[in-house]
Design a protein around this nucleic acid. Structure first.
Length: 482
RNA sequence: GGCGGCAUAGCCAAGUGGUAAGGCAGAGGACUGCAAAUCCUUUAUCCCCCGGUUCGAAUCCGGGUGCCGCCUCCA
């Protein structure tokens, strides 16, 4: 059993064989920091977060790099609007990015390089391309000459003739060829500028990723990832630049995630139909969003809606109830024991193998979650109704949960204590915990004296206030419904 | 115009040759003072349509229809 990944280069699944056995170098294109992140960014980042977690879970030593594009036209425009400068803008939105994505439980990459901190590397790479005759300077700009790279189009499956005949190739008199793209842009007066052999300027967009990935991972590395929209031209250009400069293969596997759609249409800044991650996290728990993403394959488009989040929450609630039971078993002093024998427990006993089988198939998180739910059903059969009085049963439950827990961790799920999930820090308008405890006590007294109508009245009252009561053998517990 | 992808139950979603995972929602049952949760049973004679290949296809091939993406900044 081994990992197979879908490689955009070639458009097919291939066995994953890293360049150096046991080690993986992985570069993911990050964001341009000129605005708040939207849920499309969240989808991409969660996808690669899970990929990194799974590679590490599989025993690979992963070096994970994700850049910030911190200088470009949009940042400069934003700086102008805000009356600040590019550095203030990028700093502000990098901080916002980290705030949002820390809440999503994203692993921090091993390095988060920024374009402006790699100017020497970028200049050196551009210079190399010029020296090799693969790029040319005109009036302070430097362009890459696409015709000098016969393999141009190999990633996106395009050919140069088709591209040239396409209606939307922009016209720029200074380029020798319409497909040529800027490696270095001369700065206009007042714009930030760095010295270069071609005069003061700043890097073009594509070149930074070539320079930074090669600096941190070497001239050839294993995985290069990003959104599907980056395939062309961004990644195509990265390949052209890098391979023309080094004459070596650039990245071995190209992984691209699908989009988040709204009403079946791509969500994007330019269409204006986007939700910021912040907005969404104000409405649902971060983990609900993560679960929602994990329930589809990372390459498929995924349609975002309130209903899909509600369904995701219901599914995740189910998983957290399992964790809640495991915590209760542990709190009762039970120790992990043996799982009972028998074929009926196979979905649980073999959960790790089944999960791995799904994930090995191009990180099929949807199928992997299916296997976990199979296991959860079996595990729930083992749940003691009163852990303190059923130590052996509690021990078996813990054994089962012990199998699943690391698998959930691969998906970045069930990392919070269940109480935090169900009773997490109060939103506004929620009944305070002390109040709830008092009502529960009043209801307990009513039930003890068989005054069930009063007991039901309290239940309904709390329910109307968004609090769900659950009577167990060990007493009554509660959850916020939202 | 060029290139690529998708179409599976009420909703979401796996499955790329061997006879339809899983989740949500719904129905019935067990449990419960009542609930919730949980468990059991149940919900697609069939996978957009039409042909073809095959002992056998949701899965392969041909044609059609619909939707989407890239070709311009974009995760």
């Amino acid at each position: 059993m081994s990992l197979t990944v879908f490689n955009t280069m070639g458009n097919r699944k291939e066995p994953f064989v890293p360049r150096v056995p046991g080690k993986v170098g992985m570069y993911v294109c990050g964001v341009t920091v000129y605005d708040l992140s939207h849920i499309g960014h969240a989808r991409a980042n969660v996808a690669f977060d899970i990929i990194v977690r799974y590679l590490r879970h599989s025993g690979y030593e992963v070096t994970y790099i994700r850049n910030f594009t911190d200088i470009d036209d949009k940042i400069l425009r934003r700086a102008l609007e805000e009356g600040s400068d590019y550095l203030a803008v990028s700093t502000k939105y990098i901080r916002a990015f980290h705030e949002d994505f820390d809440r999503m439980g994203l692993l921090r990459p091993d390095a988060e390089p920024k374009a402006t901190e790699h100017i020497p590397e970028i200049v050196a790479l551009v210079d190399e391309l010029v020296k090799r005759g693969k790029a040319y300077a005109i009036g302070g700009d430097v362009y890459y000459s696409v015709k000098g790279f016969p393999e141009y189009g190999k990633l996106s499956g395009k050919n140069v003739e088709d591209l040239l005949s396409g209606a939307r190739v922009d016209v720029d008199d200074r380029k020798r060829d319409p497909l040529d793209f800027a490696l270095w842009k001369a700065s206009k007066p007042g714009e930030p500028a760095w010295d270069s052999p071609w005069g003061p300027g700043r890097p073009g967009w594509h070149i930074e990723c070539s320079a930074m990935s090669m600096k941190h991972l070497g001239e050839t590395f294993d995985i290069h990832g990003g959104g599907k929209d980056l395939v062309f031209p961004h990644h195509e250009n990265e390949i052209a630049q890098s391979e023309a400069a080094t004459e070596k293969l650039f990245a071995r596997y190209w992984l691209h995630n699908g989009f988040v759609n709204i009403d079946n249409e791509k969500m994007s800044k330019s269409l204006g139909n986007f939700f910021t991650l912040r907005d969404v996290l104000g409405r649902v728990k971060p983990e609900v969003l993560r679960f929602f993403f994990a329930s589809s394959h990372y390459r498929s488009p995924i349609d975002y809606s309130d209903q899909s989040l509600t369904e995701a929450k219901a599914g995740l609630d189910r998983l957290y109830r399992v964790k809640e039971k495991a915590e209760a078993c542990r709190a009762a002093g039970a120790e992990s024991a043996e799982l009972p024998p028998g074929e009926e427990y196979a979905p649980l006993g073999e959960a790790a193998r089944r999960f791995t089988e799904a994930m090995d198939d191009d990180f099929n998180t949807a199928a992997a979650l299916g296997r976990l739910f199979d296991a959860v059903r079996v595990l729930n059969r083992l749940a003691p109704s009163e852990p303190a009085a059923e130590r052996e049963q509690a021990g078996r439950f813990l054994a089962g949960y012990g199998i699943l827990s690391p698998l959930f961790a691969v998906l970045g799920l069930l990392e919070a204590p269940s109480a935090e999930y169900f009773q997490g820090a109060g939103e506004k308008g929620r009944l305070p915990e002390g109040e709830i405890a008092a009502r529960i006590e009043a209801r307990r007294a009513a039930r003890a004296s068989k005054n069930f109508s009063e007991a039901d009245r309290i239940r309904k009252e709390l329910e109307a206030a968004g609090v769900l009561l659950e009577d167990g053998k060990g007493g009554t517990t509660w959850k916020y419904k939202e």
